[in-house]
Design a binder for these strands. Structure first.
Length: 699
DNA sequence: GTTAGGG
DNA sequence: CCCTAAC
């Protein structure tokens, strides 16, 4: 069960704090509460942004990332891409086979002024080194090509060589793979820039996100680097809830080099994002299958977190996935015929984790409290501003503006015959799943994560003059709420979407307004989170079509987002959605439709005549009009009837079947067992028995 | 596409 | 009910 459930997204564990949107007024000097809210809001937005990104990333990004071993300043690469109209499309539909598909969504930029926003980590214990080690070792075990490591390195800040100034330096040669994996190796003094108090486990880990069970868990780590300002979104999912808490919390960190497992480098030199591909598979039914079946066996190997980073890693991942993840496919609808499968949807988002980075916003004015309260400003669109801060005196304010986040790509495969509505739902689900975990904002300064929420910006060293360049924000999964067992266990592993939920909750859900064919031309989708997260359990982001942002060119600047992989198994299992949904097209399993006595009778009668080897004929004879009853169903029902008839009445469940029918079942079963109806046409005479089954049996 | 069986 | 190997 668990395995089935846990599948992809489970975010159940995460919850995003519900926060109302912050008022625009900058002035609010808000006391803590408000601040908190604001921060939360920002977080949401970030999430939204991330979600958008998810849609977007595609192979290209991946490949490019992988390909690029070098560090690139900023996110140029992506930005360029995004700018291309073609690329911009919100979603592309590609076939999975090729693995290509990527789209991007953009999120409106957000500017934040307040340090409060920054604080995330409270309450989160640091990750344990041990855990890290484990992961690392696990990683090592993986067969990721060096490149991966290399890439990872890029992402990492942690190099010893790097000095405090540049927290993240990309060093190609400096570390070997082993190093990368070794959490402790690289710990350098630099780490402490920000957090002195906290021990740093290792950056490397951070860079390398690892996934425990590839199938089940996905971890994405994305690092965004923007030379100027960067927001990093790093999402991790941890398969194990418990683990998540402890380990991941640390992980969650943003690109900071500091601690634990994950750190993302991002600093000036930072190159691109190193996405890790997550692999949350959204596949519905398939996933379940996988888990249960042989694939499961494979999975164990990957239990430990592995990271799939970079293209190489990805490749391997893909391969792995291929083998293991057939499940990722969705069946488009309750499909009776397997053939449809080909056409079926596939939504798998793999996030390459490409996390592109966040774009920057132009400066905004800062206003704030002396104490450093933060206010959220709305940013203008457009310019590629980066985070800028101005700090003049003690009380001076530091302004931060974050334009947008890029979301990791989502892969969606839909049959041409699928409806737009279906597509929308698919995307929605995928996005929701990704976002479901909830995000928090982390602050990274010079590659180090700033953990102490109570520090003032000044104390933390965040001032306009100095290091805004190296200041970054990262979205990290919020573990605060980690697992909650909300959904019933029987939920199928995959995403379960609740139709109701979707409809009610995300009115804006329509992602694509235009026809699919035109999708490419359409402006990127902007994903925005609604505040309605309120209920904790599932917050469902709503997607909105990008409007202004797109037009103003914001899109191009948007950077990648990284989805967070589900952290714990529980979470995975749960999924943000409620299980209530009936079966929409996407549903994985047909609704259960118990046979009525009348149907049983018809079945028994048909079998008596035709035998047990010609189900198709049985179907035609007795259930011709019952579209929902396939011959396989009839066969299965017969199987169960035989079993039912064989057991004690007390053991029977469900609607009781008249004993006489059961007797007939046994009689027919016995009869046909002897007469082999299967082979020859029906040379065998049908049971004639209706009257006295017993005799038949004897016969 | 059907069957037969295991899950 | 689902999935699959066999036919």
């Amino acid at each position: 069960m668990v395995s089935k459930k846990r599948q992809d997204y489970g975010f159940s564990g995460y919850r995003i704090p519900v926060i109302p949107r912050a008022p625009r007024s900058i002035r609010r000097r808000s006391p803590r509460k408000k601040l908190v809210e604001d921060s939360a809001i920002s977080a949401f937005e970030l999430l939204a942004a991330v979600a958008g990104k998810l849609l977007q990333e595609s192979e290209s990004s991946t490949s490019s990332n992988a390909a690029e071993g070098k560090v690139q300043p900023g996110i140029c690469r992506d930005s360029n891409k995004t700018r291309l109209p073609e690329n911009d499309k919100a979603l592309k539909l590609k076939y999975f086979d090729q693995g290509s598909c990527a789209e991007s969504a953009f999120v409106p930029e957000i500017s934040i002024q307040d340090r409060n926003i920054l604080s995330n980590d409270k309450g989160i214990p640091q990750a344990e080194n041990d855990s890290v080690l484990e992961h690392t070792s696990a990683l090592a075990s993986c067969d990721l090509p060096k490149k991966v490591d290399y890439d990872m390195k890029l992402g990492m800040c942690k190099d010893k060589s790097s000095d405090g100034t540049f927290p993240c330096k990309v060093e190609e040669g400096s570390h070997d793979v082993g190093d990368i994996y070794d959490p402790k190796m690289d710990i350098g003094p630099e780490k402490q820039l920000v957090d002195e108090s906290e021990p740093i486990d290792d950056l490397t880990m951070a860079n390398t996100s690892s996934v425990k069970d590839p199938i089940k868990e996905c971890v994405n780590t994305n690092v965004l680097n923007n030379s100027e300002s960067s927001v990093q979104l790093s999402l991790y999912r941890d398969p194990m809830p418990g683990a998540l808490f402890q380990k991941h919390r640390n992980d969650v960190k943003l690109g900071i080099r500091d601690d634990d497992e994950n750190s993302f480098g991002f600093n000036k030199p930072s190159p691109k994002i190193r996405p890790f591909r997550l692999q949350p598979c959204i596949g519905y039914r398939r996933a379940r299958k996988m888990l249960t079946s042989k694939y499961r066996k494979v999975a164990p190997k990957y239990k430990d977190r592995e990271l799939f980073n970079t293209s190489d890693g990805m490749k391997s991942f893909y391969r792995y996935r291929k083998n293991i993840c057939k499940r990722e496919r969705y069946h488009w609808a309750p499909i009776k015929k397997r053939k449809l499968f080909d056409h079926s949807f596939e939504v798998a988002y793999d996030q390459e984790a490409s996390s592109e980075s966040v774009s920057n916003l132009p400066e905004k004015e800062m206003r704030g409290d002396k104490s450093g309260s933060a206010t959220i400003l709305q940013k203008e669109s457009g310019v590629s501003g980066s985070v800028k801060a101005h700090q003049k005196s003690k009380d001076s304010k530091v302004k931060f503006s974050i334009k947008s986040f890029r979301v990791p790509e989502l892969y969606i495969e839909v049959p041409e015959t699928a409806t737009v509505g279906s597509l929308k739902r698919m995307v929605m689900e995928a996005v929701t799943a990704i976002l479901g975990s909830g995000l928090q904002v982390g602050v990274v300064l010079q590659g180090k994560k700033v953990r102490d929420d109570n520090r003032t910006l000044q104390q933390a060293g965040i001032s306009q003059s100095s290091n805004l360049d190296t200041l970054g924000f990262a979205l990290e999964p919020s573990f605060t709420h980690v697992s909650r067992p909300r959904t019933p266990k029987d939920l199928p592993l995959v995403l379960q979407r609740d139709a109701d939920l979707q409809s009610s909750r995300s009115p804006a859900s329509p992602i694509f307004d235009s026809g699919i064919s035109n999708a490419s031309l359409d402006p990127p989708v902007v994903m925005k989170l609604d505040n309605d997260i309120g209920n904790d359990h599932d917050f469902i982001p709503s997607l909105k079509t990008p409007t202004d942002a797109l037009k103003d060119g914001v899109l191009p600047d948007s950077k990648a987002l990284v989805p967070v992989p589900p952290t714990d198994m529980e979470a995975l299992a749960v999924v943000p959605f409620n299980s209530k949904r009936k079966h929409n097209e996407l549903s994985q399993r047909r609704t259960r439709r118990p046979f009525s006595v009348a149907e049983v009778e018809a079945l028994v009668e048909a079998v008596e005549k035709l035998g047990t080897g010609r189900w198709r004929n049985v179907k035609m004879r007795a259930f011709e009009d019952a579209d929902h009853r396939t011959y396989v169903d009839l066969k299965d029902k017969w199987k169960t009837l035989v079993h039912t008839a064989s057991i004690a009445p007390q053991q029977r469940r469900g609607e009781p079947v008249p004993q006489d029918l059961l007797d007939r079942v046994l009689a027919a079963h016995a009869y046909w067992s002897q007469h082999q109806p299967k082979h020859g046409k029906h040379q065998v005479e049908p049971l004639q028995i209706t009257d006295s089954p017993v005799e038949m049996v004897g016969a």
